[in-house]
Amino acid sequence: MKTVADLKALREKLQAEMQVRSDSGTKVVVGMGTCGIAAGAREVMAALLDEIAKRKLQDVHVEQTGCIGMCEKEVLVDVIRPGEDRITYGKVKPSDAAKIIGDHVVNGKIVQELVVGRIERQKK
């Protein structure tokens, strides 16, 4: 049985991660309204979290949001890279997580076939 008593290894890992985390990194937002969850948002979010952990991406933040009114296009995933347009992906499946993270979040290459919306970045 695992217990919370032995946290030494975890503590060291977290310390290392904290050095490089900031609030300015890329944001990934998953639609977790009833419609999103019914369409498999939890599985998609789990796959995104796994891919981020696998690639050891320290400065990517996954957040959840409610229903935004495009229920028929769920699961919806937004990717916001700092200084770039906000891209909305639709009908995302857990198997798309690797491509979204690998192509877009890491390399800045938008996964065109899944795009359902784009919001231009705020001009300063």
Partner: peptide, 17 residues
């Protein structure tokens, strides 16, 4: 309580744990 300011649940190491 155990991790103090390291307890950031958005941190991959922590949610994987």
């Amino acid at each position: 309580k155990e991790l103090g300011n390291l307890a950031d649940f958005t941190s991959p190491a922590l949610y994987e744990w």
